[in-house]
Each structure stands twice: as C-alpha cells, then as structure tokens.
Computed example of a mutant assay.
Amino acid sequence: MANDLTLEFQFRNRRFKDAEKGLRTFHRVLKKDWDGSAKVLSAELRGFLDAVAQALVERHSGAWPGGTTTNTLSRRSGGMLESIVNSVDVRGQTFTTIEGVIGGSFIAGVQEFGATIKPKSAKYLTVPLPAALNSDGTPIKKSAREWPNTFVARSKAGNLIIFQRRGAQIIPLYVLKTSVTIPPRLGMQATLSAGLPYFVDRAMDEIVRAVVAAK
C-alpha cells in the first residue's frame, strides 16, 4: 500500500535520489563482504516500520465519534489498525535484497487513498445512523434487512431514510445513498516519508557501530 518513498541522500559528496541507493553505496564502501550489516539493517528496518504502525494506532485511536476529524479516525472495532500492525514484515537475507513491507486491510487502503464507494448490486448503499450503531461506532446489525418493523420514507431534507417503528416511536436507522465518498485520512505515506530520513541516519550509525565492534 505504501511504495516509492524517496528522499535526497548524500554520502561522500555524492547525492542519491533515494535512501535505498545511498545505503547500498554506503555498504559497498564500508566493507563489501561484511554480511553482518544485513542483520543490523533488517533489525533497524523492522523497528522503523513497527514505529510507523504504532504511530498510526495512536493517531487513530480516539473515541467515536469525536476522534474522527479531517486527518484522524475514531477507533471502532480496531480491526483496521490491527491489520496494519500485523502487516509489518521484513524480507531478504542480504544487504541488497532486504525489503520492508507495511500495508493493511482493504479498509486501510480506502482510508489511506480515499475512495468513492458505490453499491455493487443494490440501488442504494445503507449508511447507518446513530441509532443503528453501538456506543463504539460499530454497526449493531450486519445488514439493514435484519431490523424488524422498518419502512422507507423521504425526510424533510429530501433524503431516503430507513425508519423503524418502536411502539409509538419512529426511529431513523439508515440513510440511503447512491454513493459515498471517503476522504484520505490514514496518513501512512506521510508518516513513512517523515520518518525515513531518521531511519537512514540511525541505520548508518548502527551499522558503523557493529563494524567497529566486530573488528
């Protein structure tokens, strides 16, 4: 989900377009045959990606609904954030083949890049209103069809609403929409980009320390 991260990198008066090329050159100059550098880089990359995942968890763990703003999300079931934490992986056994991965569920991708959601088969999407949600913002029912005693009517504002009869009360449960636009609010790419220069500096320092200790 998060790819093509680049930054200006300078080593021995040579400027590189991205961190990967700069680190590889650093490795070749430092000592071509020292395989211990791969273990150090792998550990640092894992630590960096874990820190990015944790930063996203902390940013998007506010209580529903107040935790949802223009650039933050309320924590609801926690499934999306858990998928990001569990997605972190570092692969490769040598310095030049190591790669780090961070992503998440489909919902995480939607929240990262934004999307316009349209119904696949039905005419409308059913968007739950507060009465159809638990206190943490998760839906009480999996589907609007599971609610008894419902009917559809148009509100004064012109929206189609699924209402439920509860004795003498009429409760609005869902608003019907032909599409819903979700803005990008996750910020994974921005968090990675902001932390990448610090990761490069730390990785280089740790590799140098390991080289000195190995001599």
Rank of each mutant, 00 (worst) to 15 (best):
Y198A: 04
A168H: 12
I161D: 03
A157F: 11
F163H: 00
G195K: 11
F199R: 05
S143V: 02
R202A: 08
Q164V: 06
P184S: 03
P130T: 07
T138D: 08
P128N: 06
Q164M: 15
N149D: 13
V127Y: 05
T116E: 13
P119H: 13
T178S: 10
V180M: 09
Q189S: 04
D205K: 15
K141Q: 15
R202D: 09
Y198G: 05
A168S: 09
T191A: 12
P183C: 01
N134V: 09
L176R: 08
G195F: 10
L129W: 11
K141M: 14
I171Q: 03
Q189T: 08
A168R: 13
Y174S: 12
T150W: 06
M188A: 03
P119E: 14
S155L: 12
T191Y: 05
P128E: 12
K118N: 03
L196Q: 00
F151Q: 10
N159I: 12
F151D: 04
Q169I: 01
R185M: 09
S143Q: 10
F199S: 14
K177G: 03
L186E: 00
T116L: 02
S155I: 08
W147S: 09
P184A: 02
I207M: 14
A203L: 00
A153F: 10
L173C: 08
S193C: 05
V127F: 04
V180L: 06
W147Q: 02
A168P: 07
K118A: 07
Y174F: 14
A203S: 02
Q169E: 14
A131P: 00
P183S: 10
A203K: 05
A132F: 02
T116M: 06
P183F: 13
M188T: 03
P172E: 07
L160M: 15
S179P: 01
I182L: 13
L173G: 01
R185G: 04
A144Q: 14
G195P: 07
T191V: 01
R145Q: 11
K118D: 01
A115I: 10
V200G: 00
F113R: 05
N149Y: 04
R154E: 11
L133K: 12
R209L: 09
Y124N: 13
P139W: 15
G137T: 14
L125K: 11
Q189L: 06
L196R: 06
W147C: 00
P197H: 06
A131D: 10
I170N: 15
K120E: 09
P119A: 10
K120Y: 06
D201G: 06
R166G: 08
S193T: 15
I140H: 10
F199G: 03
K177I: 01
I140K: 15
T178W: 07
P130C: 08
A153P: 10
A157I: 12
K120F: 09
